[in-house]
Nucleic acid binder design. Structure first.
Lengths: 121, 121
DNA sequence: CCTCCAGTACGAGATTAGTCGAACTACTCC
DNA sequence: GGAGTAGTTCGACTAATCTCGTACTGGAGG
């Protein structure tokens, strides 16, 4: 394939910021993913992202949680390190999206369960 | 009670010992079930039961784990209280089975993931 | 009766996870 | 440069979980 130059000004769509470190698809572990999803706040995060999947990635302020920022960092990091979310740095903000393709390939049906989840009364 | 036979695994369903306390199907919570399944030993328990689903319920000695009995009690109880297993007392031993119908009704596809799970190398 | 057996209950120690405040970094815009 | 903003990092505290030894219970069979 064509040798890609270090900085190619003629490649408009391929300029996504790099993703933060995350496990590769084949390294995803069911027990780790389930542990990450076994928290109501994190289930809420993933479900909200799934229901808005057509829109762009969302920064963590978008969710409107009334929690200290350090708590949110903790949970987003847990989801990313488990392989549930991919995060990219867009200028100031770090936007997240669900790794739908990877998760559906490795654990088909799992995201459907999350999508239909409802928080406890 | 009929005759002097030992506890009979072939007993008709009407004579099953009562199940230990467990959450009703409609009370099953996804986050609780996922937490119960996020442990490798418990995943092994459930998977082994699923792969032997045609056989009768299994007592916890059947699994052949090299762990103290009190640890096993802990994990079986966690699975039962989350609603993953049903346990019945057959004479001396307490036999477990997966609540396949309930779980498939509430969380379709989840047990398939467990069935295909493989422990880490 | 008394012993064996499957499993529970209790409780301690170690580890991990969640929660949060406070200080900090990195980017943007004026 | 300075202010404001989005989020991180650190450290502390608390709560939950895992692991396991020991003691116990409750049948089954002699």
């Amino acid at each position: 394939m064509r040798s890609s130059s270090v900085t190619d000004p003629d490649a408009p769509p391929a300029e996504l910021p790099p993703a933060l470190p995350e496990p590769a698809r084949e390294d995803l572990r069911l027990e780790t993913v389930l542990a990450a999803l076994s928290d109501p706040l994190r289930l809420t995060i993933v479900r909200k992202l799934l229901l808005e999947r057509e829109a762009y990635d969302h920064p963590c302020g978008w969710f409107g949680f009334d929690r200290p920022k350090s708590s949110l960092t903790h949970h987003f990091k847990a989801l990313r390190e488990a392989g549930v979310l991919r995060q990219r740095q867009y200028g100031l903000e770090r936007r997240s999206r669900v790794r739908t393709e990877d998760l559906n390939a490795r654990f088909p049906g799992l995201l459907d369960l999350v999508e239909e989840w409802q928080p406890a009364s």
